[in-house]
Write a protein that binds this DNA or RNA. Structure first.
Lengths: 206, 206, 206, 206
DNA sequence: AATGAATGAGCATTCATTCAT
DNA sequence: TATGAATGAATGCTCATTCAT
């Protein structure tokens, strides 16, 4: 969910942006291991291989690092999600792809997932900001697809699209949280199918 | 989700247990307003009307207060949930009652809800512990009801009961989180119906 | 210029106010030795025999310690100056007593003098505040005595009392500054006579 | 009290010496606005229109900038003072000219005055050094004129010349300090007459 | 000469916890 | 039980200075 570090291939000089990304990667690792509040800026710096002060050349403060992790990852994720569904016609298939991408992305990067599921949730300050920015964008994508599905007669029209998008997100979110807290090391992405199956058809026998 | 403060009605002396509960209530209020990490033990003490040191007569440390809030509230909640479903036969109705109780309880106590949705989530330490204790009990109740429903032929048998219980919980949980972060002041409990409707019948048109 | 530490003489318990005064005395010593900006709060605490945090039970912050030194000393000084002149009739004698008290007080406490002459002067923020508070009171006392002298026909009436009070203060102030910077260890108080002599009669021969 | 910036008028290239002077002027402005301790070297560099590192091509360190301001200004001042009095015979008139020059120079350059009256005073390190170098030279000029006046029978012989020179300096110094701290914007130089009048004739009526 | 990215030492302040009363 | 004064460990951030270019 975060771009890989890129090193210049025409010289051994590290690209400017790479130092910032190195700090971001380091922060994801450190925050996921010790928690945001227990992580020291100097831990992040050491992990990134830079001096403490250098962190402040790229980030306003410790909070800003956490913000950047979120913004950066969401940006990439939303971009990818949009690309993935733009060539699909079936709204149901679109939701299935989004669900899969959601679990795939976080399932690929446990550290990032921990930061997303735990560290970002521990403060109303963060929560409030996030729930009105990139996160709102994400929910909105789901919602629009749902509305499209209602218009095409695929989804029930008695349901509120906003609530439905939250139900789907909540279910996926819970899968991720359980996954990172689990002692077992099962693959996360396949759970998308089950979630989608329940979301689409419900649990009742027919 | 937490017992109301009870004052002795035969004397002016506050009952011993009430002082502990006063501190718990104070902590719920303070934590929900400032966040756990930004709350000082002295804030909790002042809110409870006791001296700083007194807090340590009832709780091991600051973390222990948060733990107690969780344990105390979950205890009451699980007890109430069990009582609510013990006289019901229909597993579907049982889940409906649980869902409604979940949203009713937290919808009645915004401060407690904030602590549950935000403050308790900000540390893997807490999360790991919670996900294996009282929270596991709660998920297990849902799961058992689900299995019962499968045995009675009401619920689909191709679905994993554990995953289903998480999907239901995740959906409800997301409702609560959105509710506490929302500027609007809508009633939370009624959303249980929609969530249950989706969970039971799915979103697809038939 | 600062009250001496008082210990309870009826028990070995240190009086509450004494801890604050102990910190003030310690700060005067530490600031005068290392300068305000180079002094660490922990230096002051160690010198006072208390923990770092204790300093903050009595002072808002490091700046507040410096402020308090000034306020405390000026309070005592102004009180004493007023008492010294209240029973005198001759305005000239009043100024002589003030000049002597000024040099006597600071001449008795070199550390305090260093703080007054050097540390308090190094910031416009402090300077501006001081020059409009206790320091203004001091200058005003001199000025009022001067006006009284003009009314009694003792002092020249063509001179601006405000300017005259500043001239006298400036001369005394320079004596103190030179004294603390001097390698030699001469007594400061006697210089009051010379300053007063010049201030009263001028340097011209007649 | 500081030479004006001179730019080459035969080319667009700034003369080498001018860059050093530009940094000095920038430092005077920045120090007077924010105080020496609160000013960053990068502030000075920006104000001077050079890179941070460039400052260190002309000055050893931040302290050295403050030293240079003092040395540079005193050099010019003392040179000018000497020239002003070399063609005068009357010691009294010499002192009057010095007093006027003192207040004229600082009254022309408020930023420099702030640095002289406030920033240079905040450290015993600076104070001690200054009081034995250029400042001692300045006091010595006054003192020599005073002795000359005593020899010519103009000034009282019962007075210590050193003390007298300090009294005059202290009075002038206080005028400057009050001027920079004053909200009102009165001209400083004219106060030289009053100070000299008091210094020469005293405040007593005759 | 000039640059400015990188460094890393340094410090005020907070606050959970203790303990003498 | 209850108090609250005292403790002292712990850390984010700044900024003077360097040095490769």
């Amino acid at each position: 969910m975060v771009k890989q570090l890129r090193y210049s291939n025409s010289s051994n000089k590290v690209l400017a942006g790479d130092k910032k990304e190195a700090i971001l990667r380091a922060a994801i690792k450190v925050f996921s291991q010790n928690g945001f509040f227990n992580s020291k800026v100097s831990d992040v710096a050491r992990q990134a291989g830079v001096a403490d002060g250098t962190v402040y050349l790229y980030f306003k403060n410790k909070d800003d690092i956490l913000h950047s992790i979120f913004r950066h990852a969401m940006e990439i994720f939303i971009e990818e999600a949009k690309k993935k569904i733009e060539n699909l016609d079936d709204p149901a298939e679109k939701l299935r792809q989004i669900a899969r991408l959601h679990l795939e992305k976080l399932g690929q990067d446990r550290d990032l997932a921990v930061v997303f599921q735990v560290e970002l949730r521990g403060s109303t300050k963060f929560m409030e900001e996030f729930s009105t920015t990139a996160f709102a964008d994400y929910l909105n994508i789901i919602k629009q697809v749902f509305i499209e599905g209602q218009q095409k007669g695929i989804f029930r029209e008695d349901l509120n699209p906003t609530v439905c998008s939250k139900v789907l997100f909540g279910a996926l979110d819970e899968m991720v949280t359980n996954w990172i807290l689990s002692k077992k090391n099962y693959p996360l992405a396949p759970m998308a199918e089950t979630v989608i199956s329940i979301f689409f058809d419900g649990v009742l026998n027919r």
